[in-house]
Nucleic acid binder design. Sequence first.
DNA 1: CTGAAAGCGCTTACAG
DNA 2: CTGAAAGCGCTTACAG
Lengths: 331, 331
Amino acid sequence: MIADQLELHVSTVSRVLHGTSGESGRAAGPATVERIRRLADELGYRPNPHATGLRTRRSNLIGVLVPRLSDIVLALIYEGIEEAAAGHGLSTFVTNTHDDPGIQRSRTEMVLARRVDGMIFGDAYADARFLAEVTARGVPFVLVSRRAGDLPSVTCDDHLGGRMVGEHLLALGHRDVAVVAGEPYASTGIDRTAGFVAAYASAGIEIPAPRVVASGFDAPGGRAAAEQLLACGPPPSAIFAVNDFAAIGVLGALRDRGLRAGTDISVAGFNDTPLAAELPVPLTTVRSPMREVGRRGVDLLTRLLRGEQAESERLRPELVVRASTAPAPPG
Amino acid sequence: MIADQLELHVSTVSRVLHGTSGESGRAAGPATVERIRRLADELGYRPNPHATGLRTRRSNLIGVLVPRLSDIVLALIYEGIEEAAAGHGLSTFVTNTHDDPGIQRSRTEMVLARRVDGMIFGDAYADARFLAEVTARGVPFVLVSRRAGDLPSVTCDDHLGGRMVGEHLLALGHRDVAVVAGEPYASTGIDRTAGFVAAYASAGIEIPAPRVVASGFDAPGGRAAAEQLLACGPPPSAIFAVNDFAAIGVLGALRDRGLRAGTDISVAGFNDTPLAAELPVPLTTVRSPMREVGRRGVDLLTRLLRGEQAESERLRPELVVRASTAPAPPG
DNA sequence: CTGAAAGCGCTTACAG
DNA sequence: CTGAAAGCGCTTACAG
């Protein structure tokens, strides 16, 4: 370390520059402390994290796995993660796993090989098999966006969000509705669908199984699902897509058939993605606190790292009504 | 290292597990090599990167700065970066700088403090002042997406892309056109605008200054710019927005005024973002090879790290014509 | 109040 | 073909 050019032992310098300083100041004499501090930031001294990591066995690094950052929902969650991590002096590795179990596994190994202190998974499968293995490895981790089993997680209260959409459509008089339900392995789609179905059940309406169709989380996925829904029999009067991209796909499918969203068939999405309000027919959706999910995920992880108890959190969503949903046609 | 439980010296093990192996196999006797290899992957041994980094002064880490990952263009470039980096055995730190010079600076410091081997900037200002400071620090780096001065960069050939749009609109007979030009500090907007203007100049048409308006790179930015353009005087018959998000904003502004995109006013964007084709009026745009920009950026950086000469690259874009551009009204 | 030592897990010449 | 030593830059008890 260059700072011992002022003829002090490295250990003294280390003690001073270390966190101990906030304590009762027994790191060194006040004059010495002052000299060291001065020289340190004059030189822009930064401790070598490799040395520190080697010695302390803490890297202040966390690994983050997401399905894909090109999904704005995950990108915004990551912004929250990054922000909070920086606040805790942590750096993050993010990586895209494309919801592929093989990539999830290999990326986890890669990240672990880097000796991260903990991990954040944004790509949890509801069947938590792989995550059970990770638990067995003893690395602290939390889930964001999607939950699984009773692993520590920070998510939007998706069940409640789905229920809100259900109640909204019920209030508009829609009785024959359908759900574009997302991937069957993601708790987001599962919970949003369940909440929606539960709202209808409370009103004494059972949504028939063929009215609930699995789908990709992107626009082509939503479009395909909608086409399946519209292919035979009378169309539903409203469609709930469990995310905004799928909803955009639904909108496309409707347009192709000459149906007007809102007017002919109501459509609702989920997440309140920035584009939702900009669409030609602005989209009714559920606002989920994406950045906040990321931030709290980091907070939860830091608690875990300190050995504290960690409670999962469900953050409250908010219904945003726009022109894509309208009263059901009389009949 | 646990692997010396087979009664060998660490140095032997290190030699075997190290890259030297591919060489003439003079790391150890064949039998020994075999035993070491076996035990190593039985135990899932991974060298501690802190120790390696401390010893070799190479971290195999690269820092990546982007304006925001929630911009899908950058997210896709980052996917390419990540992919290529993994192929080279490098891990990446990405961070959002929101195009804010203060954040660019502090994040660069943070990343440098982590002892990265090199950096990739996706948020270069055309005035390369800050980057000159980074050069002075001696860290190898490359630019992606945006270029600056003659620093090594991998970008789309934005000038050519702009020119392509210009020629397309000229061929459709548009003579009174406008540009929503993006932020003045980004080479993307500058070059695309310049290429477009050059195409018109070649046809003997000079685009008047008020027809070129700066804008944010997002939908609200595009909307605001379009409103300014439509506020007074006769509207142009076509608008070129230097990216798809801004183009979506333009579309919104047209809709608000009861103008139909394509029919009343032609609109073109840039990047061929996944949503461009899904819009109610599919968007004419320029496809830029985003993942490829990321991949090549990493390749370029690795060349720099090996001390080789590095040539900037301009990747070829492709015009994608859709319904949002149509022949100019006669007159 | 400050110094000296040990050690984190590697790699790299250098011996033998 | 393999071992032994030195050292990367820190931190952490432990002396004095």
